[in-house]
Nucleic acid binder design. Structure first.
Lengths: 225, 225
DNA sequence: CGGAACGTTGACATATATCAAAGGGAGTGG
DNA sequence: CCACTCCCTTTGATATATGTCAACGTTCCG
């Protein structure tokens, strides 16, 4: 039982570098939870009780406006943690989280995790690295929202995905386009028009969730500017 | 000499809770630097060599687009640290920093600070708290940029300043309106029109850097939506 | 005194959101 | 296996917020 959890921990970037002894300790402060599709995991301004590690499925972390518009802050997939930052500080979740698929997570209760950190400074250092990484990603997001138009943001997204998948000349979207729109800070209609624009200029070819790169140079020149 | 630095450390939120013994140790890994107005402290994608604590003056941390537009991520004033997150991870500054006034900072070199943390886990915990706080602020910024129009962002800013200054019925801007525009993700012209709009609706009265609140209820209702 | 930076206003351009409609796929139930 | 519905996606017409460009007054500072 606990061994299974240790295996799951090993597959996360946050814990993968630890030795088995420590992982076993960690596994004792953790609960495995199943979450069905579209379930609300927590809502913004709920008291922050825990943070999560996704072991199966996808979770979106997002902000909502009064009139129902959403901005996705991150999509957490297998191996990703989310809501780490909520535990420290005022104690309220600063955003909402909802599963996009049937999902399995490890649940790290606040109190147990705190005492874990205190006894194992190594974890604190890893956590610092993780929070720093998140901060850099958020800076990037702010930059894009504030300084780049939507076609450019889309191009940036495609380039990032290309790099993650080893620079093939094609990517396949793992998320619905509606979701992608919300990640990019826009709405499906506008995203659709941006795809069109890139396609009209013979930079990409779109067929459902498949995006073929026709002109990598032009794509990179959009991003570079 | 070192005692002066200890006093400066005590006035920062990051270090204020530590005892004198630890502060003295910290003070030994630190350099006091003077920076004249408008000096570029580091530029985005420079190798990250240090983080900073402002002891006098103001520093803006910002992103730049290819065509010269700026988005300010934060303004660091007396007692604030900045660039903490840059030290961990890929080792490049994710944004630029420039002084807005004559400024005095404590400079925490990377290597010395790392060994300091390793020997003093307390610092790591404080750092985690600080990074979490920054992350929440950045989430807030993303939310505002993506979901609120500029008049609403301005109202949010005014409300925040009111709270910080103890809810008087008046605030005085500590930054130029050009700077404020860049903090809010817009340009001076548009900011000026937003001020006008709030003034026309008798919600505020603007006279240079002074903003008088005429209708606190309306102001809060803009923010609430 | 003179120039530079700041702040404001006006006319205009443009990107993006909104609203409405329709097609297509996937899943469900009869 | 068909028909129906729901959700996703796309397209078109239109509205709106915000950026751009130009001009001008003001203040600040050398």
């Amino acid at each position: 039982m606990k061994k299974d959890i240790v295996e799951l921990l090993k597959k996360s970037s946050l814990f993968s570098s630890f030795d088995d002894e420590l992982l076993l300790k960690i596994s004792e402060s953790v609960v495995l939870k199943n979450i069905s599709k579209n379930e609300l995991i927590f809502y913004e301004s709920d008291p922050a009780a825990a943070f999560y590690l996704v072991t199966k499925g996808q979770v979106k972390v997002f902000k909502t406006s009064a009139d129902g518009k959403e901005q996705i802050l991150m999509i957490a997939s297998k191996g990703d943690t989310f809501a780490e930052a909520a535990l420290f500080g005022e104690g309220l979740y600063p955003a909402s989280a909802q599963s996009l698929t049937d999902t399995e997570v490890l649940y790290f209760g606040k109190d147990k995790f705190f005492s874990l950190i205190e006894k194992n400074p190594k974890i604190a250092l890893k956590l610092i690295a993780r929070l720093s990484e998140l901060l850099r990603k958020m800076s990037k997001l702010v930059e894009e929202l504030s300084l780049a138009d939507i076609t450019t943001r889309l191009a940036l997204f495609i380039v990032k995905r290309l790099e993650e998948s080893g620079n093939k000349s094609e990517i396949e979207l793992t998320e619905k386009k509606t979701i992608l729109a919300s990640q990019l800070g826009t709405i499906p209609e506008t995203l659709s028009r941006s795809f069109n624009k890139l396609a009209r200029e013979k930079i990409i070819e779109v067929e459902g969730p498949k995006i073929k790169i026709l002109d990598s140079d032009k794509l990179h020149s959009i991003v570079g500017e």
